[in-house]
C-alpha cells in the first residue's frame, strides 16, 4: 500500500506547522521523516494516519491492503501508549478484541506476534514491570497483530537509551525485512534514519516545509558492512548540513509553542 500526501498544510492558531507538503511513502519502503524539534513531523504523521485533520491538502491511499489486515494504518508511539491495567497479552489483545475473529485465530495472532517480538515469556507481565525497550516491543507486537499495510512509527525509539535503541532497531529491521511493510518513520536522530530508511525526507522548522528527499542506495541488510560505511558517512554529512543550522535555532529557542511537535 502507498500513502500519498498532497499539498498538506497545517496551522495551530497563528503558527504554521506544515506548509505545502507533497510526499509519498512508496509500497514496501521505509520513509524517514527527519527534522529538528518543532518542525511538525509528528503533526505530519498524525495527518498521514488520519487522526489529525489537515488545514489544507489531502492524503490519499493507493493499492490493496495486505491479506488479513485489520487496521491498514497502524501506529507505534513514542510513549508506547500501553494500558497500564492490562498485561502484555491484554495490550496486544486490545487491538483485536473489537474485530470479528474466531477465538482460535485471535490467540494464534497474539502468540505469533509475542514470539516474533521476543515477548513470549512476558505475556502475563504488566507494563510497569517491563523496561522501556520491552514496553516498545509490546507496542510493536500490538501493531503487528493487526497485520498493518502501513506502519506509522512516531519516534518509536526516542524514549529509549542508546543501547536499547540499537538492539530494538536491529530486531525491528529483522522483522521488517521479512514482510517489507510500507513504513513512515519519524525521528530526530540522523543515525537512526540512516540505519532504517530507504529514503530520508528532511523537514525545515516552522513553517515545516520539505527541504529535500534523499534516497539511500544501500539495502538495510548491508548497512553494517565496511563498504557501505563510506557512502553512509557522506550521506550523513550532507543531511547534517541541511539540518544543522535549524537545529541550532531550535536549541536556542526559549519558549516552546507547544502545538507543533
Amino acid at each position: 500500500m502507498e500513502l500519498i500526501v498532497e499539498g498538506v498544510s497545517h496551522r495551530y492558531g497563528d503558527v504554521t506547522a506544515l506548509d505545502g507538503i507533497d510526499i509519498a511513502a512508496r509500497a514496501g519502503e521505509i520513509l524517514a521523516l527527519i527534522g529538528p524539534s518543532g518542525c511538525g513531523k509528528s503533526t505530519l504523521l498524525g495527518i498521514m494516519g488520519g487522526i489529525l485533520a489537515p488545514s489544507a491538502g489531502r492524503v490519499m491511499l493507493a493499492g490493496e491492503a495486505r491479506a488479513g489486515t485489520l487496521n491498514p494504518l497502524t501506529y507505534v508511539f513514542q510513549d508506547f501508549a500501553l494500558l497500564p491495567w492490562r498485561t502484555v497479552e491484554g495490550n496486544v489483545a486490545l487491538a483485536l478484541e473489537h474485530h470479528r475473529l474466531d477465538p482460535g485465530e485471535r490467540a494464534a495472532r497474539i502468540d505469533d506476534v509475542l514470539a516474533r517480538t521476543g515477548l513470549g515469556d512476558f505475556r502475563a507481565a504488566f507494563p510497569k514491570q517491563l523496561s522501556g525497550g520491552m514496553r516498545q516491543r509490546v507496542g510493536i507486537a500490538r501493531a503487528l497483530a493487526v497485520k498493518p499495510s502501513i506502519l506509522l512509527m512516531d519516534e518509536p525509539l526516542s524514549a529509549l537509551d542508546a543501547q536499547t535503541r540499537e538492539l530494538l532497531m536491529e530486531d525491528f529491521l529483522a522483522l521488517w525485512l521479512r514482510e517489507r511493510i510500507t513504513a513512515v518513520w519519524v525521528t530526530h536522530n540522523l543515525a537512526e534514519a540512516l540505519r532504517v530508511a530507504d529514503r530520508v525526507a528532511v523537514l525545515s522548522r516552522r513553517p515545516g516545509r520539505l527541504r529535500d528527499v534523499v534516497a539511500i542506495g544501500v539495502p538495510q541488510s548491508e548497512r553494517g558492512h565496511d563498504a557501505a560505511q563510506r557512502d553512509l558517512a557522506a550521506l550523513h554529512d550532507r543531511l547534517w548540513a541541511l539540518i544543522k543550522a535549524e537545529a541550532q535555532v531550535a536549541e536556542r529557542e526559549v519558549a516552546d509553542h507547544g502545538a507543533a511537535g
Binding site: G49, I51, Y75, L83, W85, L94, H98
Partner: peptide, 24 residues
C-alpha cells in the same frame, strides 16, 4: 490523551474506548 488517541488509531469503537480505556 495519548491512550485515547491510541484507541482511535486502532479503530476502537466509541463504546470500547469508554469501557476499556476511559473507565479504567
Amino acid at each position: 490523551r495519548s491512550l485515547i488517541r491510541m484507541g482511535q488509531s486502532f479503530n476502537l469503537p466509541w463504546r470500547d474506548i469508554v469501557r476499556k480505556i476511559v473507565l479504567p
